Measured scan of single mutants.
Amino acid sequence: MDVFMKGLSKAKEGVVAAAEKTKQGVAEAAGKTKEGVLYVGSKTKEGVVHGVATVAEKTKEQVTNVGGAVVTGVTAVAQKTVEGAGSIAAATGFVKKDQLGKNEEGAPQEGILEDMPVDPDNEAYEMPSEEGYQDYEPEA
């Protein structure tokens, strides 16, 4: 019985440690998101679009440190934060509304985080759909 109880105690310690790591990862992701939003706020009209992409990228980098179902929630929060940063930029006159959601080359930025393969159960990952990809044929 002692062996059984000791095993359960060790398992509990492992769960607590994993929860603490997840909590730490979420806190880091939130900190990076805040950094990115402050970065966007300090940019001029020309830099705002690039700044919004930076927020998304920093958040995406930190999301990889967070495991399990938390990833889905962090990704949703990050996307809403990026959308909010863009709205703030438009409201303050840093950028025109028609410039939001495009990178410096004018290509749409939507789907940055949505296409990231995420499995809350950590069982399997699927690649994003290939609808947006084109076949590449090298020139002879």
Results as ranks from 00 to 15, higher is better:
Q62P: 01
A124S: 11
G84L: 07
P117K: 07
V71L: 12
G25R: 13
E130I: 08
D121L: 12
A124C: 08
V48Y: 07
V55N: 01
E35K: 09
Y133G: 07
T72Y: 13
A107K: 09
T92K: 02
E114Q: 06
E28R: 09
V26N: 00
S9K: 12
Q134A: 08
E130Y: 04
K23Y: 11
E114K: 05
Q134T: 03
E61V: 06
Y136H: 14
Q62E: 06
I112K: 03
E126R: 08
G86C: 14
E61S: 06
K32S: 02
K6D: 03
K96W: 12
V55Y: 13
F4C: 02
K34V: 12
T72D: 15
T75Q: 13
K96Y: 12
L38Q: 10
P117I: 03
F4G: 00
G73P: 05
Q79R: 08
A89T: 11
G84P: 02
G84E: 07
M127G: 03
V15G: 00
K96S: 10
T54C: 13
F94Q: 15
A53N: 07
Y136R: 15
E131N: 11
V40W: 01
G67C: 10
E104Y: 12
D119S: 03
D98G: 09
V82S: 04
E104T: 14
E46S: 15
G84Y: 12
K34P: 00
V37G: 01
E57W: 09
D121E: 14
T81V: 12
E123Y: 10
G106S: 12
N103R: 09
E137Y: 10
V37D: 00
G51Q: 06
Q79P: 02
V26D: 00
P128W: 05
T64C: 14
A69G: 07
A124Y: 15
D98H: 15
Q79M: 12
P120I: 10
V66K: 02
L100P: 09
K6P: 00
M116V: 01
P138I: 04
Y136F: 09
G31Y: 13
E114L: 05
E114W: 14
A124Q: 10
V16I: 11
K6L: 03
G47K: 05
L8V: 04
K43I: 05
V15D: 00
E13M: 06
D2Y: 13
P117G: 13
Q134W: 09
T81M: 07
N65A: 14
G111Q: 15
G47W: 12
G36T: 11
K6F: 04
T22W: 14
V55E: 00
K80Y: 11
Q62S: 12
Q99R: 04
A69S: 09
V49K: 07
S129Y: 12
E61M: 08
D119R: 01
D115Y: 15
G84K: 11
G132E: 09
K12M: 12
A124I: 02
T81D: 02
M127Y: 12
Q79S: 09
G106Y: 10
K32Y: 06
T81I: 08
T59L: 04
V37C: 09
K21W: 10
E123K: 08
E137A: 08
K21P: 00
D135C: 10
N103T: 15
K23S: 02
A76W: 13
V77C: 11
Q134M: 14
K80W: 13
E139F: 15
Y133V: 05
A29P: 00
A124H: 07
K10C: 02
K58P: 01
A140E: 07
V48A: 04
E105Y: 11
A19E: 00
N65C: 06
S87V: 07
M1S: 00
E35A: 04
L100Y: 01
P120V: 06
T81Q: 09
Q109A: 03
V95N: 09
V71N: 07
G132T: 06
T59H: 02
T54E: 03
G84R: 14
V3G: 01
T44A: 13
E13L: 01
E28C: 14
D2H: 08
T33Q: 01
A90C: 12
T59Q: 01
T81W: 05
N122Q: 14
T54P: 04
E46C: 06
Q79E: 03
E137K: 06
E130C: 09
K21V: 11
V82Q: 05
Q134C: 12
A76R: 08
E130A: 05
E126H: 08
E57P: 02
V37Y: 03
G14A: 15
E61H: 09
Y136C: 13
G36Y: 03
V77G: 03
S129G: 09
P108Q: 11
F94N: 02
G7N: 08
M5F: 01
L8N: 00
K96C: 14
P128G: 10
K34Y: 14
Q24T: 12
E46L: 02
A124F: 13
M116D: 07
S129W: 04
E105M: 04
A76I: 07
G47V: 14
E131A: 14
E57S: 07
A69V: 05
V3W: 02
V48Q: 00
K6H: 02
N65W: 11
V74L: 15
D135Y: 08
E131W: 09
K58E: 01
H50W: 10
D121S: 14
V37W: 12
T33V: 12
V26H: 00
K102G: 02
E57R: 05
Q79F: 06
A76G: 08
E104F: 04
P128S: 08
P120N: 07
T92I: 03
V71Y: 06
A107W: 05
V16S: 08
E46N: 10
G86Y: 11
P120L: 10
K102W: 13
V63I: 13
K80I: 08
K12R: 10
A19I: 03
D121G: 10
T92N: 12
E126W: 02
Q134G: 13
M5K: 12
G47A: 15
A69I: 04
G47R: 09
